[in-house]
Amino acid sequence: MAKDKTAEPRVQGVALRSLPKVSLHDHLDGGLRPETILELAEGTDVALPASDAASLQEWFAERADSGSLVEYLKTFEITVGVMQTREALTRVAREFVEDLAADGVVYGEVRWAPEQHLDGGLTLEEAVEAVQDGIEQGEDIVEDSGRSIRVGQILSAMRQGDRVQEVAELAVAFRQDGVVAFDIAGPEDGFPPSQHRAAFDYLAGEFFPVTVHAGEAAGVASIRSALLDGRALRLGHGVAIARDLEVVSREGEEVLVQFGDLARWVRDREIPLELSPSSNLQTGAVAHWGSQIEDHPFDLLYQLGFCVTVNTDNRLMSRTSLTRELAILQAAFGYDLDDIEQFQLNAAAASFLPVEQREELIDLISEGFAR
């Protein structure tokens, strides 16, 4: 797991790591331990840019901090490259769950693209089963340590490829075996959800949940397509929704904002935004507003009543954790424990769990913050 350079951040005297947290947008191939990459690369033709864990972690962070989603995605050639066997997928998934639990996460959803892990001879079904095995092993290890965590899979299809329908059917086939939702990922600009309308129609007909990467690199139009063509229940990142807002005036802390129709719909319907502050800076998703965390529209969206959630996106590439993301936001915007609890309650309510389990998760978070 990436080292958290923020030494045990606290808010109002409480260690953020100790608080129950919910992670909704976290990529399996973006959360490997550098040590694991080194070991899995042995005996493969994957060429690594460094021979020790610290240097490898530094390489990922530097390459990911490019200001471009396309360049950012190139770092995954290495992580995906070492995840081509059943054993590798199971190990990575197991460690993924362990690392989430160590960070105080009590519920997580891990997304990944099975179609990218077939070079070693696995079928799509075998790849999903391998990851599920790892998740369940990780959950058992966490339980044996006296804690608890639950993790569901979100299957992503690569939006620039030709297997979107196939992965959609795969997700539905595994809905009783660990898969909780469907997603499309990859280069956003030029590959709108509308290109895969048939797959989304199929998912809607099966009443299967969908989240879509949108509003990260392709602007407001991608969000519109995610909602209309993809019937997305959540927006992966969705940062660009702030471009459908016009700040009319500012007087001290009072901000008068005019909503566009799309922004008002997303806010009024409480469509969750899977915001990932550090990643959004690295990929240039917030370049319209600036280059510092204080420029991120997160706080504006929160103050206006949008359903904001806090996520890591890729812990390895951003050298981060959910605790660190919360600490960064707290330092930038002065949030207190009530704010941080609200972000977790938003995420719990937005999770792809049955309503009874969502209510249990909400109670668990409220009890944890009350203590």
Rank of each mutant, 00 (worst) to 15 (best):
residue 237 H to Y: 02
residue 160 Q to V: 14
residue 41 A to G: 02
residue 226 A to Q: 14
residue 122 L to F: 05
residue 115 E to D: 14
residue 350 A to Y: 10
residue 160 Q to F: 14
residue 50 A to I: 06
residue 260 G to L: 13
residue 349 A to C: 10
residue 357 Q to E: 15
residue 286 V to C: 07
residue 238 G to R: 03
residue 229 D to W: 07
residue 143 E to Y: 05
residue 103 D to F: 07
residue 189 D to K: 13
residue 245 L to K: 04
residue 64 A to S: 12
residue 214 A to P: 05
residue 218 A to W: 10
residue 183 D to R: 09
residue 9 P to T: 03
residue 20 P to G: 13
residue 266 V to Y: 08
residue 187 P to R: 12
residue 196 H to K: 02
residue 54 A to I: 11
residue 33 R to K: 14
residue 324 R to M: 11
residue 202 Y to S: 02
residue 299 D to T: 10
residue 200 F to V: 04
residue 245 L to E: 07
residue 272 P to V: 12
residue 336 D to H: 09
residue 191 F to G: 03
residue 196 H to E: 00
residue 130 A to C: 09
residue 187 P to Y: 10
residue 88 A to E: 01
residue 258 Q to F: 06
residue 155 L to P: 02
residue 203 L to S: 15
residue 214 A to V: 02
residue 128 V to I: 09
residue 170 L to P: 01
residue 369 F to Q: 01
residue 259 F to C: 02
residue 120 G to A: 02
residue 209 P to E: 06
residue 145 S to Y: 03
residue 224 R to N: 13
residue 227 L to I: 01
residue 320 T to G: 05
residue 208 F to W: 10
residue 260 G to S: 13
residue 356 E to R: 08
residue 93 A to K: 12
residue 286 V to F: 01
residue 57 Q to T: 03
residue 131 V to C: 03
residue 12 Q to N: 14
residue 150 R to Q: 11
residue 64 A to F: 02
residue 118 L to I: 04
residue 287 A to R: 15
residue 312 T to K: 01
residue 167 V to A: 01
residue 185 A to K: 12
residue 19 L to R: 08
residue 123 T to L: 05
residue 214 A to Y: 03
residue 61 A to H: 04
residue 10 R to A: 12
residue 95 E to Y: 03
residue 82 V to L: 07
residue 50 A to S: 07
residue 123 T to V: 02
residue 127 A to C: 06
residue 296 H to M: 01
residue 109 E to P: 01
residue 150 R to S: 13
residue 217 A to R: 05
residue 150 R to H: 11
residue 34 P to K: 10
residue 177 D to K: 15
residue 285 A to P: 07
residue 84 Q to W: 00
residue 34 P to D: 03
residue 263 A to E: 05
residue 51 S to M: 00
residue 150 R to P: 00
residue 106 V to C: 15
residue 17 R to I: 14
residue 166 E to K: 10
residue 44 T to D: 01
residue 330 Q to E: 14
residue 203 L to F: 15
residue 78 I to V: 04
residue 99 D to H: 04
residue 120 G to F: 01
residue 338 D to Y: 08
residue 234 R to P: 09
residue 216 E to F: 07
residue 171 A to S: 15
residue 240 A to R: 01
residue 223 I to Q: 11
residue 283 T to P: 02
residue 324 R to Y: 11
residue 133 D to E: 13
residue 164 V to T: 14
residue 200 F to N: 10
residue 113 A to L: 07
residue 129 E to G: 01
residue 355 V to R: 13
residue 135 I to F: 15
residue 246 E to I: 03
residue 71 E to H: 11
residue 80 V to A: 06
residue 308 V to N: 13
residue 20 P to Q: 13
residue 319 R to P: 02
residue 308 V to D: 00
residue 50 A to N: 03
residue 112 W to V: 06
residue 42 E to F: 00
residue 3 K to T: 05
residue 213 H to N: 04
residue 92 V to H: 08
residue 180 V to S: 10
residue 277 P to A: 09
residue 35 E to R: 03
residue 27 H to L: 01
residue 104 G to Y: 10
residue 365 I to Q: 01
residue 32 L to A: 11
